[in-house]
Amino acid sequence: MFNFSVEKQTQSSEFDNIKKWDFLVVGGGPAGLNAALYAKRKGLKVGIIVNEIGGQLNNTTWVDNYLGFNMIEGENLSHTFLDHVKQLEVPILKGVYVQNIDYLKPDFSVSVSNGKEYMTKTLLVATGGEPRKLGVSGEKEFINKGVTYCATCDAPFFKEKHVVVAGGGNSAVEGVIDLVPWASKITLVHRSQFRADKILLDKLNDIEKLDIHLETQILAVVGNERMTGIEVLDKHTNKTKLIEADGLLVEIGTVPNSGLVKDMVMTNERGEVKVDLNQMTSIPGLYAAGDITEQPFKQIIISAAEGAKAALAVNQYLNQNYKGE
């Protein structure tokens, strides 16, 4: 009945006391939190700047593939991570956005939405991703008028309604499961075949109110004041049809939140940041980890591991290659 995440907000004055950081982490998901943990253990002056702790973990109802945790709520896993980091007293500046990063060779200046600038010798950008949009007509128009990207947040609005879930990966299947207590009917639509884990797909077999349309592409979201359905192309028959529905949950992966650095560092065609084996970007001292990187498998444990790698590499860089004071 209660989901705790209460903590004292770090005052900006705590952050202001440090003239120059060894290592600043932008982002509070698994990659950022683990990087801070590893860096603090190495004795680095490390701080985290974040709007909301947990990142995409907050949108995940259940996590069943993080070694050592059997079926843990996404948010609880993020609290477990945070508790560990807090034990080491890493300062966390919460409720702010980083607005700009300046590369002042070899250091970095980080401008934050609280109006402050922070200097750091090294920087990790672990800002993760945000839900990928379908990019079809009507999608934008009906956001929060039926179209949603957060099942845990908005499922209660679909009580006794018919909801379409777009996607074929783990998130889409979990979205279906999240909707079961609320929706009267669920239709899963995916343009190709399932990519989700078998263990999750098996759970769909017991959901009687679920229809599955694979090889079916969503062409448009239609409606008046609210969405009333989606137009789809059935690739088997090559015919278009209308599926009437009250809601559309889009779970087709993420796009990287790389806006802060995309003009500074090398990225791929999807906007994901290119990193070397040590998570360093094309700029010395600037690192990236987690879903923002071009690593193809967007998993919690992989993000956490990338954060650890980045922190260890930062420590090595500061000891061996850093040219500043």
């Binding site: 709007n51 909301e52 409720g95 702010v96 956005y97 939405s113 609280n114 109006g115 956001i143 929060n144 008028k145 039926g146 949603t148 957060c150 947040c153 908005d154 609005f157 004041e225 609210r226 809601g247």
Partner: peptide
């Protein structure tokens, strides 16, 4: 207020914001 996604923030019954925004927003 046509709420079907949260958090939905309505200011003076006129201006709308969706999502958890920092204080400066």
């Amino acid at each position: 207020h046509k709420v079907s996604g949260v958090p939905k923030i309505v200011i003076n019954d006129e201006y709308e914001l969706v999502g958890n925004h920092p204080i400066d927003a």
